[in-house]
Amino acid sequence: MLNSQSPLLHVRSLSKQYGPSCSSCARLTGPEQGTNICPECGGVVACWEVSFNLFPGEVLGIVGESGSGKSTILRCLNLDEPPTTGEAFHSGVEKGKTNLFTLSSQRKRLIQSSLLGIVYQSPHLGLNLDFSAGANVAERLLIQNNTPEYRRIRKRTSSLLNKVQMPVKRIDELSGAFSGGMQQRVQLAKALAPRPMLLLLDEPTSGLDVSVQASVLDLIASLQRKTGVSMLVVSHDLGVIRLLTHRTLVMKMGRVVERGLTDQILEDPQHPYTQELVASVL
């Protein structure tokens, strides 16, 4: 066989429930039931038994309507919050033998800041808007360095801002003063700071107007082409999915209803929901 690689990220049966839960939750929710709120106990099943592999250099998309559980998966994988059940293995953490969710919070924090980079839909989740652009990016570099040297960090921060096409002379301006597009660029610079193997993008361009969205997407696509970083891209926009990803998971009501090559999902969708989704856009 042609080079068969081992996955960078292996996710197994990831589930996340909010509020109460009962033994009927899984049975009474999902796309067939048309709800992700359990009628018995009122708990919310945000995502249920989601499994996938992400390979080095690969871009995997997760597409689905609002509330389908896409962002929940990303938050769990960024170790922001623990899943209810499930496992995730990262090949850069103990050769992929340890479930990330069982690690101590200190280890999680270290992994978060050295192996993962995330861009949230809303900048205030990813940035401290009361700090300067440079400080937001440098924070990541400081966590990694035990003996930080001001000049080196400053230099690297400038080059990162340059990489995301931010005017470096604005390095000391408050992040809150920037436009939406620029804030997404600062988030991207921050995410790229530790040279992560995996980039998590949560609707990275959703709130932006069309031309700014285009230039941020161009930037992401060209960074991916040049560095070969693996990415997990969550979006409800099939255009974004088509442009950036190799493979796609389609989610509805917390379940993965379809998965496949991105061009196959878009041209030969199998599940009724995916057919509806594709027919509504193209």
Partner: peptide, 15 residues
Amino acid sequence: SIVDLATCSEQMVLE
């Protein structure tokens, strides 16, 4: 090697 393109993994197709 022989690959059945109708059923092989997506990973293989991409490669």
